[in-house]
Design a protein around this nucleic acid. Structure first.
Lengths: 217, 217
DNA sequence: TTGACAAATGAACAAATGTTCATTATAATG
DNA sequence: CATTATAATGAACATTTGTTCATTTGTCAA
């Protein structure tokens, strides 16, 4: 009976709860958490502010829920659909795939909003910093490191510091992603930045790949 | 040259105005503009909030003044002490110098606060976005582009797209700078990130430099 | 000293904001 | 149907916040 009732209440109640989260994310990501009022959120859904408190203890809990969602969002699970033990065998095209995944994040509204929320609260919210650092930065750099280590063993790329390579590969992607978000805010063209994702992979690969023997031909 | 004479010539008022800007920057950069109250600012100086309005029309004007200061701050004039027409002759050590300048920004409290302010308001304040884009990003990337173009002509580095190189050189520096700021917020060690500044230059240079002839010896 | 002027104070205000709560509406369940 | 749990409403609240203003304080020049 407990499960049943929980399921039922979830299915009907969660509709507004989801709406709240969705609209709150939109507002937080564009105005910032502090500047967004509970009346803003309620108003954007079409309910009164007091109704929010049937679903969340307070305004902070809405943010906390969104932050928690971050840990399972696509911007944090860039590599989860790939098998690490085989990753290192594909070489450059693998890197291109990662860069493309990264790039595509900005074209999904939900992910873009999460990214903007992340960026805006990063300097004020320690919990967000934890998530950013642990799930977004460390996790991805660690996976990249493993990939590069594998590539080195297979002699696909030159032997060097895998952690450095991971950072060098990751940081431009992050930066270009940020640039795209910023340009979109002002409705400017993003094409020149978007093209940098691929060019970055090319440039990076040229540096790390094992040189073919010059005397082969 | 002592306090007294300064006090006497410049009226006491301008000193308070500077204090306001200094403390406001500190507070804005740590709590964000919206979350900082005029009482916070006044309190941190030791005056009453109403006294602020003898120096600034309102809270927004304080932020605007700080934003304006950004355009002439060190985080925006990274290259201003160098002569562009000669820059391209130094090669790798020039790049190392730029990276070091970048790195050192985070060790000056004023610059670090400006950087944090910039990052926090970037997604909400169009004027800051303009300044960031024009003075911080475009300006520096343009100068870097010119440097790389020169290096290519001198055949110090391989011929390729100077603008891409500029972005590839700039973006990790930016990212590492951000990482340092974030780590400092939580009083964590920054040494591993700080070392990435130099390693980045090494890695970058290996990719772009003109290969020496292998058969020389 | 006196007069003038900038700066600081204390008190107050209106608006905005997060939150509570008693009441009403809604919908599923026995 | 009646019951019961959940959701939404309207009204209210205590605070917080930006700002104003009349008054006082301090400083320098005449």
């Amino acid at each position: 009976m407990d499960e049943q009732s929980v399921n039922n209440t979830l299915s009907k109640g969660s509709k507004t709860k989801e709406k709240i989260l969705k609209h709150a994310l939109k507002l937080f990501s564009s105005k910032g958490f502090k500047a967004t009022t509970v009346r803003d959120i309620a108003g954007s859904i079409g309910i009164k502010q007091s109704a929010l408190y049937n679903h969340f203890k307070n305004k902070d809990e809405i943010l906390e829920t969104l932050i928690q969602d971050l840990t399972t969002s696509a911007i944090v699970t860039l590599f989860d659909n790939k098998d690490p033990s085989e990753l290192h065998k594909e070489g450059k095209s693998l890197l291109m795939g990662i860069a493309t995944t990264f790039k595509l994040l900005s074209f999904d509204g939900q992910n873009e909003a999460l990214f903007k929320l992340l960026m805006q609260e990063l300097f004020r919210n320690e919990r967000i910093r934890e998530i950013y650092n642990e799930y977004f930065y460390q996790e991805n750099v660690k996976k990249l490191s493993g990939i590069f280590f594998g590539m080195m063993q297979e002699e696909v790329i030159k032997s060097s510091d895998p952690l450095l390579l991971a950072n060098e590969f990751f940081s431009p992607l992050f930066f270009y992603q940020m640039q795209v978000s910023l340009l979109k805010l002002d409705k400017k063209s993003t094409s020149s930045v978007v093209s940098l994702f691929e060019k970055h992979v090319e440039h990076f690969w040229d540096n790390v790949k094992v040189e073919k023997q010059a005397s082969l031909f």
